[in-house]
């Protein structure tokens, strides 16, 4: 199939993301005229001095949603191809759990997210937790040849870190426990402009680096043996896959909490809709499909005055997609 056949889908997604992005900027709990929003965006002054902060907040969380949704979806796609398992996602290698453990150590350890130090501490601890699990995985991967065994090892890391977090709950007070639980519900809000620069730089760089995996991914669809037979270095590919997807998932988790379902549901949905088998085409489509779902979910959260948790919305949207795709694949006897 040619690239041309997927252009309509790609265009719809880009237009959809664009529309949702503007809706997120224009609509919210505080009604503002379109002219006021444009005025603020172009550096003008509004009647209410808080409005510029509100627009900045809407802009930041929309950009975060686009990047985080895209990153999770791409990460999920690569892992599903690599593990040849439709239920593989950014959380399966235990890296998300590692980030969660790092965050839990800080929050349940009593450093609040309200202060600048607390926020920085949360991000640093999350990164350290994720990198620790990542390094452990890379080390273990040297001794494990079977990808499924690596998947199981990742799941075990997840259980292990979850157990450690449960132990931390025992010493935490009510406020810290509540703070951690709320963080676990996921949110695209709260990333300031400075943090957004770092976040965007990391996500864009890593997403672009994922294009280095296009050739190996195209070959892996036909199986590991086939990929090896055409000269793909499986060991190196595996290392890059673990590192790229791991860091993508870790960065999103640290900033937004463990956001569920996007990483699993979007690649599956795109695989059903897309005609091309070339990952140079699939990766950007999956990225924008992830962005679209994340922005849609955040829009619903915002329209509920933030009373609905992000993960509740992604689950409501994502779970039926997964079930639908699995049934459809079963009917067509398709496998990864």
């Amino acid at each position: 199939m040619s690239l041309r056949s997927d252009i309509p889908l790609f265009s719809v997604l880009i237009i959809g993301v664009f529309i949702l992005f503007w809706m997120n900027l224009l609509l919210g709990d505080v009604p503002m005229k379109t002219a006021d929003v444009f005025n603020i965006l172009t550096g003008g002054v509004a009647d209410n001095s808080a409005w510029s902060y509100i627009i900045e907040s809407r802009l930041n969380r929309s950009v975060v949603a686009i990047l985080a949704g895209g990153a999770l979806a791409v990460s999920g796609l690569i892992l599903q191809v690599f593990f040849r398992n439709p239920l593989a996602g950014p959380g399966v290698l235990g890296i998300t759990s590692g980030a969660s453990l790092g965050v839990a150590v800080v929050i349940l350890g009593g450093i609040t997210m309200g202060s600048f130090l607390g926020n920085l501490g949360v991000i640093m601890a999350g990164v350290i937790g994720a990198i620790a699990v990542l390094l452990l995985l890379i080390f273990i991967a040297r001794f494990i040849k079977n990808s499924v065994t690596l998947l199981v090892a990742g799941l075990m890391f997840g259980y292990f870190t979850a157990a450690l977090i449960n132990v931390l709950f025992l010493w935490a007070n009510e406020t810290d426990t509540r703070e951690y639980v709320v963080w676990g519900l996921g949110s695209f809000e709260g990333v300031n402009s400075t943090e957004l620069m770092i976040f965007a730089l990391l996500i864009v760089t890593l997403s672009l680096l994922c294009f280095l995996l296009v050739k190996p991914l195209n070959a892996l669809v036909a199986g590991v043996d086939y990929a090896a037979s055409i000269g793909i270095n499986i060991k190196t590919t595996r290392l890059f896959i673990i590192v790229f997807t791991g860091i993508l998932a870790a960065v999103v988790t640290v900033y937004c909490g463990p956001v569920g379902f996007i990483g699993i549901a979007v690649p599956q949905l795109v695989r059903v809709l897309v005609k091309s088998k070339n990952h140079a085409v699939i990766i950007p489509i999956v990225f924008f499909a992830g962005s679209f779902l994340a922005l849609s979910a955040d829009f619903i959260v915002r329209m509920s005055s933030n009373s609905l948790p992000l993960n509740t919305v992604t689950a409501i949207v994502g779970a039926p997609i997964i079930v639908w795709v699995i049934i459809k694949m079963n009917q067509r006897n398709v496998s990864f």
Binding site: G28, D29, V30, S49, A50, W51, I54, E189, S305, N306
Partner: peptide
Amino acid sequence: ISHSNEQVWNDGV
């Protein structure tokens, strides 16, 4: 009463 950041920022002024 649960309010979003937006609403309270708007009213806090």
